[in-house]
Every structure is written in structure tokens, then in C-alpha cells.
């Protein structure tokens, strides 16, 4: 058994709105597993169902051979959950918060582990601070330390880096990758495609459906496309001109355009000549490995049409 979790045909409706529609996938043990998609894709709903905070309308979730409905209480010491919203006690100190989580999970001998985790998350100097006085990044690290105190086998992190500054975000990622050696499976949801590049395995979701899954490379290759990136001005005119090219799609990112070609036949010279013919100044033009963002936008478009 290489899977930590098997998700089978999970569906969930909130009134008329379908949040999850027949979602199935497996989470491999000891990986950083990413659930990627925009806001409203159904990420949080899925995580809450996996942590048994929500009941699915249909489907089953199996944790290494155990059905969650039956062994619900036992499984709770194996699962860690970091909600999107900070859910620790702001009026308790860092130490007290960790102690409380250890206590309710029945961990008695937690002092060494706590020191270790505070060292690991660099919160040692703040251990007597009230949690409410910590910065956003420190709060997330505290939440992580609290979760890790009872040594769960799998942790679910719901958009852990949303609203965290880039430096803290990088630090958080380093901490997470350090966890893999402890035999922990990490499940993360994120709306940021650049972050998704770090995952071992990705499930891309939109509107409650899985639109693609695989390793980042697999996902990119599966689409079989190549990308030309152009920095030019005026960028909006260029966008309107290039949109007329039939064999390619144009995506706008601020001051630059990504022209996505189906297949590997990206033609940057052709593009450059079209642009200069139309009196557009090209500052930079180059072939690029497609990013997950390119892929995602393409997938969304193809689903729409």
C-alpha cells in the first residue's frame, strides 16, 4: 500500500450549489500533495470532508485501509488539520497552545517534542508570547507546530501561505520539506500556481471538478504545448492582434504576453514579425517552458468551450 488516503467519488452540495462533483483520487504516502485551484473550486470543502469536519453527500474516504466513518475517533490522532483561518487561542501563549493540543490528543510526554518543534519553526524566543501578538507567518508556524506535536501521519493544510509575506512563505516551505523525512504525508491546498510547482503531485480543481492531475511535469507534458513570452508595448494592442492567430492562445500577464501553441511548434520569429509590422515595440521575446499557470488557464478555457 503506497497510498495514505484513497478518495472515492466524493460529492457535496450546499443547497443548489455543487461544491464537489464525484471527486476521486489517491494520495501517495510521504509526498507533498497539492490541491490547486481558484477560490470556490471546492478545495476547502474537500479538506473539511477529509478531516471529518463536514459530511459528504456521497463517496468514501479511506485512510490506509480504514474507513473514516467507522474509525473516526481513532483516526483523529493520525490527522493534522491547519484551517485557512487561524484557529488557536489568541489569549494563550505559544507554549500553552501547544500544550493544549497535545493534551486533547492524549500526548503526555510532549516537552522534548515541543522544544524540538519550537526550534524547528524558530519560535523558541516567542514561546511566552500570546498567540494573538504573533505575525501572520509566525501564527502559521505555530499552528503547524501544534499539529505536529501529536505526530500525525498526514497533515492537511488549507491555504497555509495565503496572507503570509514572501519571506515567511519561503521559510514555511523549507520547514514543510523538512517534514518529509519524518514519514509524514503533506496535503496542501493553494490558489497560487507558482507554489504548486513545488508539489510532488498535483490535483487541479475548478468548480468542484478535477481538471487535471499528475506531477507538475506530467501535467505540463500532457497538454503538449509550447509558450512564447513577449514583453512589448502597447501590450493591449499586441494582445488584440495576436488573438487573431488561429493556432495559438494568448494569455496576458501585466506587461507581458504568453502565446501558447498547441504542440511544440512555438514560432517566436513569426510572432515578432507580426508585432513589428503593426508598429509594436518588442522589448524581449523568448521561448519558455510552460508554467502551471499557463496550463491552468488553458485547461479552464478548454473546459469552458
Amino acid at each position: 500500500m503506497n497510498n495514505a488516503v484513497i478518495i472515492k467519488n466524493i460529492s457535496k452540495k450546499f443547497g443548489e450549489v455543487t461544491a464537489l462533483d464525484n471527486v476521486s483520487f489517491n494520495i501517495r504516502k510521504n509526498t507533498i500533495f497539492g490541491l490547486v485551484g481558484p477560490d470556490g473550486a471546492g478545495k476547502t470543502t474537500l479538506i473539511r470532508i477529509m478531516c471529518s469536519l463536514l459530511k459528504a453527500d456521497n463517496g468514501e474516504i479511506e485512510f490506509t485501509g480504514m474507513n473514516i466513518k467507522k474509525g473516526s475517533r481513532k483516526i483523529k490522532n493520525e490527522i493534522g488539520y491547519l484551517s485557512q483561518k487561524f484557529s488557536l487561542y489568541t489569549d494563550l501563549t505559544v507554549d500553552e497552545n501547544i500544550q493544549f493540543i497535545a493534551d486533547i490528543h492524549g500526548v503526555t510526554d510532549f516537552n522534548n517534542r515541543r522544544d524540538e518543534l519550537l526550534q524547528f519553526t524558530r519560535l523558541k524566543d516567542f514561546r511566552n508570547f500570546q498567540a494573538g501578538k504573533l505575525s501572520g507567518g509566525m501564527k502559521q508556524k505555530l499552528a503547524l507546530a501544534c499539529t505536529l506535536i501529536y505526530r500525525p501521519k498526514i497533515i492537511f493544510l488549507d491555504e497555509p501561505t495565503t496572507g503570509v509575506d514572501p519571506v515567511s512563505r519561503r521559510e514555511f516551505w523549507i520547514i514543510l520539506s523538512g517534514l518529509l523525512k519524518d514519514d509524514i504525508t503533506i496535503f496542501i491546498s493553494t490558489p497560487y500556481m507558482d507554489e504548486a510547482e513545488r508539489f510532488n503531485y498535483i490535483v487541479m480543481m475548478n468548480n468542484g471538478h478535477i481538471i487535471s492531475e499528475g506531477t507538475p511535469d506530467e501535467i505540463k507534458k500532457a497538454l503538449n504545448m509550447s509558450v512564447v513570452e513577449v514583453v512589448c508595448s502597447p501590450v493591449r494592442d499586441a494582445y488584440n492582434i495576436l488573438r487573431k492567430i488561429e493556432q495559438a492562445d494568448v494569455q496576458m500577464f501585466g506587461d507581458r504576453l504568453n502565446i501558447v501553441f498547441k504542440g511544440m511548434g512555438a514560432d517566436e520569429t513569426g510572432i515578432e514579425s507580426i508585432l513589428t509590422e503593426n508598429n509594436i515595440t518588442v522589448t524581449d521575446i523568448r521561448k519558455k517552458i510552460p508554467s502551471l499557470e499557463n496550463v491552468f488557464i488553458e485547461l479552464m478555457k478548454s473546459k469552458d468551450t
Partner: peptide, 14 residues
């Protein structure tokens, strides 16, 4: 209100 109850709900506390 502060969703701290979620940490209790994901724990074995009944």
C-alpha cells in the same frame, strides 16, 4: 466564532 472549536473537533475529544 474564532473557529478554535475546529481544533477540538479534529481531536479525539467527544
Amino acid at each position: 466564532e474564532f473557529s478554535t472549536i475546529e481544533q477540538i473537533r479534529v481531536s479525539p475529544v467527544t
